[in-house]
Simulated scan of single mutants.
Amino acid sequence: MKKSETLRIAIVGATGLVGRTFLKVLENSFIPIAKLDLFATSRSAGTSIVFKNKELIVQDIKNINFANYDVALFSAGKDASKEFAPLAVMNGTLVIDNGSYWRMHPQVPLVVPEVNFEDAFNHKGIIANPNCSTIQLVVALQPIENKFKIKKVEVSTYQAISGAGQKGINKLLREIETGVPVDTLSKHPIAFNINFHTIQSKFGFSEEEIKIINETRKILHRKNLKISATCVRIPVLVGHSEAVSVITKNEFSLEEVEEVWRQSPGIIIMDDPQNEEYPTPKMVEGTDSVYIGRIRRNPAEKNGLMFWVVADNVRKGAATNAIQILEHLLKVAPERIFSFQKMFK
């Protein structure tokens, strides 16, 4: 790799759960790093974080000069993304944003490398990382769509509390320790319980359910896809699980379905339920694949398929997916990192 293709990287939101996981994933990535700086709000500035045995001091995001960086990895919330991502782009810095603000913007590609990496070629300086629950779902759906054509999707998610960040983890651990509900995220306890995400109206979908519906349509390029979702948070630290029901246009055998998945990148089949071999949140923690099990027909539907999908929501559902986008660009289209302003004027 050319010396000119080493990267100057800024991590915005470095002290958060996903920000720290960016660093863990980068430690094992082939990406050649010429410069790495960490940024967060003034509240977290001054924090020290170790990366490859070197102590890095977190700086105040308000002092960042994006002209000093080729890439900025964002996971600081939608308000920070709204304010600072355009500034980065103006200075020639590619933004890969884990926040929700840019995901549905028509000029911003929403990318999962195993599914629609080619969309990243059309970026205008910002590439959005999808919601954690969406990522693992579309990795599982895309091979089925390619081979059998999907007519309808119904998904129920069972989401680890780390999807709410460190404050979610703190809430669960504190409640388990004390037995007293902690009034963050929800008025309801999460220990030995479940919570729904924010719901704006009586008969409406939650914010999480809306994200899954809209983002799946965008990523699969199926704007009219029939899809519904029910999402809950559960008292698990890491690992989102999803029960998925699909109706396909074309007929299939379960053996064909399993083989299609086995041949698809990023997927591991774990499906020997009679011997209690199936994916669980505990076993996928710390990994970067999407695990599929409980493959079976839906007896209530013609061409109905049901399956179970589990992934580490902090890694593949957030940090790893963002790093994989960067790795793929660096491999096949480095000019879309280093020279994107020239390409899209």
Results as ranks from 00 to 15, higher is better:
Leu225His: 07
Gly204Ile: 04
Cys231Tyr: 06
Thr280Trp: 08
Cys231Lys: 01
Asn170Trp: 06
Glu207Gln: 12
Arg217Ile: 02
Ile247Asp: 02
Lys218Asp: 02
Lys223Asp: 09
His240Trp: 01
Leu254Phe: 00
Glu175Ser: 10
Asp272Gly: 03
Trp261Arg: 04
Pro189Gly: 03
Phe205Thr: 06
His188Glu: 13
Cys231Pro: 00
Leu172Lys: 10
Arg262Lys: 15
Ser253Asp: 07
Glu251Cys: 00
Val232Gln: 15
Gln200Asp: 13
Lys249Arg: 13
Val309Tyr: 03
Val290Gly: 06
Ile269Leu: 10
Lys171Val: 09
Gly286Glu: 11
Ser245Cys: 04
Ile219Met: 05
Ile269His: 01
Arg262Leu: 08
Thr216His: 05
His240Asp: 15
Ile213Ser: 04
Trp308Gly: 04
Leu237Thr: 14
Val232His: 13
Arg222Gly: 00
Val257Lys: 01
Arg217Tyr: 05
Ile194Lys: 12
Ala300Thr: 09
Val236Trp: 05
Asn214Glu: 14
Leu225Gln: 08
Leu254Pro: 04
Gly179Leu: 08
Lys187Gly: 08
His240Ile: 13
Val310Met: 07
Asn275Glu: 10
Thr198His: 12
Pro189Phe: 02
Lys218Ile: 07
Gln166Asn: 14
Val257Trp: 03
Gln166Trp: 11
Lys171Ile: 08
Asn224Asp: 15
Asn275Arg: 14
Glu256Tyr: 02
Gln200Thr: 11
Val180Ala: 03
Gly179Ala: 08
Gly286Ile: 11
Lys167Asn: 11
Arg217Thr: 06
Ile210Lys: 09
Ser228Tyr: 03
Asn193Pro: 04
Ile212Ala: 05
Glu208Asn: 14
Ile190Asp: 05
Ile176Ala: 12
Leu220Val: 09
Met283Gln: 15
Ile199Arg: 14
Arg262Asn: 14
Val284Ile: 15
Val232Trp: 05
Arg222Asn: 07
Ile199His: 02
Gly168Met: 04
Ala229Asn: 14
Thr216Glu: 06
Arg296Leu: 01
